[in-house]
């Protein structure tokens, strides 16, 4: 059974729903064969998803959320540090307790709860965000150290109502189950693409002395480079497939095998 022939045709209702979902992109999607098929998938998911998700509006899901600050009571801030940084394209200034991690700051103060606390000690990767292009752990980053930096969280990856290709690939390849590690996995995977382009090595790179060119990553290379993101549900093979698809630019087959 293959993925392609499993796409249910769109009903008029679905088209309408899709129009509600992505008004700007609809024409382009409908005009382009490749994109159409691609987006039909997203649509059949996205449509139901929005509905399933306790009625979050579509715009709310795909639009970049504003990082609105939840003001902290003044008594609640000790050794306050004034901080200005860019989060998901928006400038924000706030005063934080010197002890506050970037993770707790985005979650508890900026209402960006996509980044997750899985261990709070740099041992799981669920809190992975991208700072100035580098994937880092927000649980081991003091917010105070982010002065002037550009921070991207999972909420900042989609662009103009369009998911990042990595987000789409994770949906297609079912690169998650419970979804809790997913924001960290995706941020990590997005940064991994850049590292591979730079030609960065990993511990499983066979000839470390060979430098310079962009890396075409093997599955084991992706596995090693993603080993800082624990997925307890065990979606690893699907995560690797999703990343391979985006990294290689070629579709990775999905097999659903039945016998007997």
């Amino acid at each position: 059974m293959s993925e392609e022939n499993q796409n249910p045709d769109l009903t008029d209702d679905e088209k309408r729903l899709f129009a509600d979902l992505m008004p700007e992109d609809l024409k382009e999607i409908m005009d382009s064969g490749f994109n159409r098929r691609h987006f039909l998938k997203l649509m059949s998911i996205g449509g139901a998803s929005v509905l399933a998700a306790n009625l979050l509006g579509a715009e709310q899901v795909l639009a970049r959320p504003l990082a609105t600050e939840q003001a902290a009571a003044t008594a609640a801030i000790e050794n306050g540090v004034k901080l200005s940084f860019n989060i998901n394209g928006a400038s924000r200034s706030l005063t934080v307790d010197s002890r506050m991690t970037l993770l707790d700051t985005v979650r508890e103060r900026l209402q960006l709860t996509g980044s997750k606390k899985g261990c709070d000690h740099g041992q799981c990767g669920a809190c992975t965000v991208i700072i100035d292009g580098q994937r880092v752990l927000s649980c081991l980053t003091l917010a105070a150290t982010c002065e002037g930096k550009k921070v991207t969280t999972i909420e900042g990856l989609a662009n103009n109502n369009q998911l990042h290709p990595m987000q789409e690939a994770f949906i297609k390849h079912d690169g998650f189950q419970c979804g809790y590690c997913t924001p960290g996995q995706i941020c990590s995977a997005v940064a991994l693409l850049g590292e591979a382009k730079k030609g960065d090595a990993s511990y499983v790179t066979s000839n470390i002395k060979q430098t310079g060119s962009a890396q075409q990553l093997s599955e084991d290379e992706i596995r090693e480079r993603m080993s800082g993101n624990i997925c307890r549900c065990g979606a690893y093979p699907n995560i690797v497939a999703a990343i391979m698809e985006v990294h290689s630019g070629k579709p990775v087959d999905q097999h659903f095998n039945f016998a007997g």
Binding site: G122, G125, T128, Q134, R135, V136, L137, L140, T141, S188, A191, L192, E195, K198, G199, D200, A201, S202, Y203, T205, I208, K209, T211, G212, R225, S227, G228, N229
Partner: peptide, 29 residues
Amino acid sequence: TANHLLIRSQYPMLSQAILAGASAQIRNM
């Protein structure tokens, strides 16, 4: 450090050792 061309070419053992430690995120920090 691990990915610096000087280190990879002249001290590959150091690149390897660094890359054997922790995770990509931690090595970035």
